[in-house]
Structure formats: C-alpha cells, structure tokens
C-alpha cells in the first residue's frame, strides 16, 4: 500500500470532509485541540492536499493525527463545508490499517483503547461498564463515585436501575443472543480483524521497545511526554 491518497479516497468520511480548502484557518481557530496541543488542522488538510505519499506517511506515523477530540466544531464553521475532523478519522483508520500507529506515543494508545472499548462492547453490550471502570484509573471521578462503585448493587437499586437484571431498564444484563449478534457483526464487518491487527502490530512494537505486552499497554495508557503541548 503506497498510494495513500487513493486509499484515503476510499473512505466515505474523507470524501465527505475533503473538498477544496481555502486555507482560511477557521478550523484551527475554533479547534479545542489546537489550543492545547501543538496542533493545526489546517496544516493537516494542506499536507493531504499535496497528495505526496512521503508527507502523508509521515502524518500517519506522527502524534499529530491523534490530537483531535472529534468534537466536529470544525465541520460547523468551515466556509467550504470541509470537515477536517472527518479527514482525521480517515487518516487514523489508515494509520491503523498500515500499522504506522505504533510509531507515535499517541498512536500507541489505540491498544488500550481497543481493549477497553471493544472488550466492553463484546462482553457486556456497553461501551462503558461499571465492572471495568476502575476507580484507581479514574480518581477524577471523585470520592462520590468511589462510594458509588463500592456500593453499586445498593446505589443502583436505590436509583431504580435494573443493574444486571432481566428485561428493560438502566444497565440491564444484555441478553447473550444480542451479544452473539454483536460478535457476528464484528466478524462480518472487519471489527474482529481490526482488533487482531492492532494487537499484532502492538506486540511487534512492544518487542522492539524491549517491553512486555503488559508494560507496553500500561505505558501507552498513562505515559505522557511533554512534547505535545503549546508552550
């Protein structure tokens, strides 16, 4: 795979979000990520517009494409109806498919994110689930949430949830036949293959970095160097 622009053009999000950019910089002005990180969505669109494979490959290997929060504020404001956020989604997808995501600190986060989110979906039917929401990794959720998690059966009952129960309601147990259908959807649509790709590329990178798989994943989840920020 060397013609990256053609690959990007196969992505519906790219086709929706990539039109003629007039380089006005409105997207950068409105972007929450651009204020925080060394990040400029206008420059990303300009780079992609060159159709230069070398430059696009450098983007795919960079931290830059992982700074966006996908809030899509840029979509609202672009006077040419571009969507830099959509272009980013296509670039990230290509970075994962090519394995280039392991070349950047922020890209390597895809492994713990994949395990957390697809694990919750396939095991429970939810993207977020109490049993995998560890308070030690979420101290910002405050002492009140620590208390809630420590008494979750009782607090959920108090608030009228149907936690792990049969039938409809808040945090019900999603029936196994529904989870089986979601697994089948993952198998048919490339979701399962995506998980394997991420795991294989990450395993290779962990070895290259001299880390165990567990050390690599933990480091990807919590380590942040100071090179990313606007000074």
């Amino acid at each position: 795979m060397t013609n990256y622009f053609d690959e990007l053009m196969k992505d519906y999000r790219f086709r929706e979000g990539f039109h003629t950019c007039i380089n006005c910089g409105t997207c950068t002005a409105i972007c929450p990520a651009a204020e925080f990180y060394c990040y400029d969505p206008r420059k990303i669109v300009t780079t992609v517009e060159t159709r230069d494979d070398e430059k696009i490959e450098a983007l795919l290997k960079s931290d830059t494409i992982w700074y966006c929060g996908e809030c899509m504020s840029c979509v609202t404001r672009c006077p040419r109806k571009n969507g830099p956020g959509l272009v980013i989604m296509a670039l990230r997808d290509l970075s994962i498919r090519t394995g280039f995501f392991t070349e950047s600190e922020k890209g390597r986060q895809i492994l713990p994110l994949t395990h957390a989110l697809t694990g919750n979906i396939l095991n429970y039917g939810y993207c977020v689930y109490p049993e995998t929401f560890k308070w030690d990794d979420h101290k910002e959720s405050g002492p009140v949430f620590k208390w809630h998690l420590e008494h979750i059966e009782q607090t959920m009952k108090r608030l009228g949830a149907n936690y792990k129960g049969k039938g409809p309601g808040v945090l019900r147990k999603i029936p196994q036949e529904s989870l089986d259908e979601i697994k089948a959807i993952f198998d048919v649509t490339g979701g399962t293959e995506r998980i394997k790709q991420v795991e294989a590329a990450s395993k290779k990178k962990a070895k290259e970095m001299g880390l165990t798989d567990e050390e690599y994943e933990r480091r990807a989840f919590e380590y942040c160097s100071d090179k990313h920020f606007n000074k």
């Binding site: 919750n120 993207c127 409809p168 649509t189 995506r194 991420v198």
Partner: peptide, 22 residues
C-alpha cells in the same frame, strides 16, 4: 424500550477502535 438493544458503538467509533462498517 426493548432489552435486546445494545450500545450503538459510538464511543468506540470516535475512539477510532472500530471501523465505520462495524
């Protein structure tokens, strides 16, 4: 509401962990 519905997968999608077709 039916108990058989699940997540829409939106958070996983916007964390770039599942393909658009999924």
């Amino acid at each position: 509401e039916t108990p058989y519905h699940t997540t829409c997968g939106g958070i996983a999608y916007h964390c770039d962990t599942i393909p658009q077709e999924t």
